[in-house]
Design a protein around this nucleic acid. Structure first.
Length: 390
DNA sequence: TCTGGGGTCCTAGGACCC
DNA sequence: TCTGGGGTCCTAGGACCC
């Protein structure tokens, strides 16, 4: 028996959550922005009413106001969206025991075994859409197909507030006329390359051999495109639950000139990363410092440790040496960021008889984190994060 | 109208080793 | 006296997604 996969993708998720919460915002152009009162805030999600004015993700707030003066601007509340997302997933489990959460606003349901409980695929899909809309005030788009990739591409065609099912055996008919951009991972650059080759639709990709695709797009991605353009899923055996990177970055409202003003902020970003690292019971073997200068040139500097660690006092000297490299380009600074990568779970047994220097530091950090859990993150900082105040 | 913040995955070049 | 090829690690950068 052929399996059937249902893909749910929430429409304009963050904006829809705000509209569901505030009834007077429904039907009005609404935009969720990164920072409302900063000259450098941008759109993180826009309602379909706002999109009608040409507003799209990543657009600066100034341009948003110009395109639509009466737009409703709302500051993003990520924790709220995570919470609503979890409620949505719980409701989805009523339609199949096999729910795979793909992102904050996307899930896949294997409905092969549960569709008979609802009479038909169409009835199941309509019931699911109605439930999310009537009970949570959230619009979504649903796609059903025999593979994950085709269900995802069906959703892309049916947005917004739509439903599209691709019957088993009709996959190639569905895929053939779609533009190459419909394939996940094909962005502006890859599209341009395809167009130079005279390839505009998925059907035309079939003319290219696996070898040609691998030569053009690299081994890994070439293979993905080859498979996906034919509607086949690609086993993602590399996927684990292990987070790959923990990062924090900040764009200043105005470019900064002096490193003595910047460094304390960099240390605070690092503290936020290492705090999350320890909350997740992980260690990092690599630290990256990112700078975007006033001319938008972006550089990264990184350092790898011989062994993974979670100690702030290991990260700080490494971070400072990376900052020194960034200083060599004498330019105003627009953004700084800190990333921890090469993450692994902490496995550390403590000796019963004595506490090593590491173990003592470990205990200091744990007590700092306890204070932070109780009084807030900013309750405790390293001296270097405090700048001039000592 | 100047261009956010959180991620994922991949590639290329150089160092170094055998 | 000059030179092979494969493998791994490190670093920097880039495409793409939500």
């Amino acid at each position: 028996m052929k399996s059937r996969i249902l893909h749910v993708d929430m429409d304009a998720f963050f904006a829809s959550v705000e509209q569901a919460e505030q009834v007077e915002f429904r039907g009005r152009p609404l935009v969720v922005v990164t920072k409302v009162n900063s000259p450098r805030g941008v759109v993180s999600s826009s309602s379909y009413e706002a999109r009608a004015y040409g507003i799209s993700a990543g657009m600066p707030v100034g341009e948003v106001r110009k395109k639509c003066p009466h737009v409703v601007l709302v500051p993003g509340d990520y924790e709220k969206y995570v919470h609503v997302s979890e409620q949505v997933v719980r409701r989805l489990e009523e339609f199949s025991p096999e729910v795979m959460v793909a992102s904050i606003d996307e899930s896949f349901l294997d409905i092969t075994g549960s569709v008979h409980l609802f009479g038909s695929e169409d009835k199941l899909a309509i019931k699911l859409k109605n439930m999310l809309w009537k009970e949570m005030g959230l619009p979504c788009t649903v796609g059903i197909a025999s593979t994950y990739i085709v269900s995802k591409m069906a959703v892309k065609q049916a947005k917004p507030d739509g439903y599209l099912s691709v019957p088993s055996g009709r996959e190639l008919d569905f895929l053939s006329p779609l533009p190459v951009r419909s394939i996940p991972g094909v962005g502006p650059k890859a599209e341009q390359i395809f167009n130079l080759l005279g390839v505009y639709t998925i059907g035309q990709i079939w003319q290219l051999s696996l070898e040609e695709l691998e030569k053009i797009f690299g081994q890994s991605y070439g293979f993905h495109i080859f498979q996906w353009s034919r509607g086949y899923d690609v086993e993602r055996f590399t996927h684990t639950d292990l987070p790959r990177v923990i990062s924090r970055e900040i764009t200043f409202d105005k470019d900064l000139v002096y490193w003595r003003d910047i460094v304390p902020l960099v240390v605070k970003l690092m503290e936020a990363c290492t705090y999350e690292l320890r909350q997740k019971k992980m260690e990092a073997r690599r630290i990256v410092f990112k700078v975007r200068y006033a001319d938008f040139i972006t550089k990264t500097f990184s350092y790898s440790f011989p062994r993974p660690t979670f100690f702030d006092n290991n990260f700080i000297p490494a971070l400072f040496s990376l900052v020194e490299k960034a200083k060599e380009r004498r330019y105003q600074v627009r953004l700084v960021g800190v990333m921890l990568s090469e993450l692994t779970w902490t496995v550390r047994q403590s000796s019963l008889f004595y506490l090593s220097r590491e173990e003592r530091m470990n205990r200091v950090l744990r007590s700092i984190d306890v204070l932070r859990n109780r009084y807030g993150f900013s309750y405790v900082h390293w001296a270097s994060a405090l700048g001039g105040e000592r």
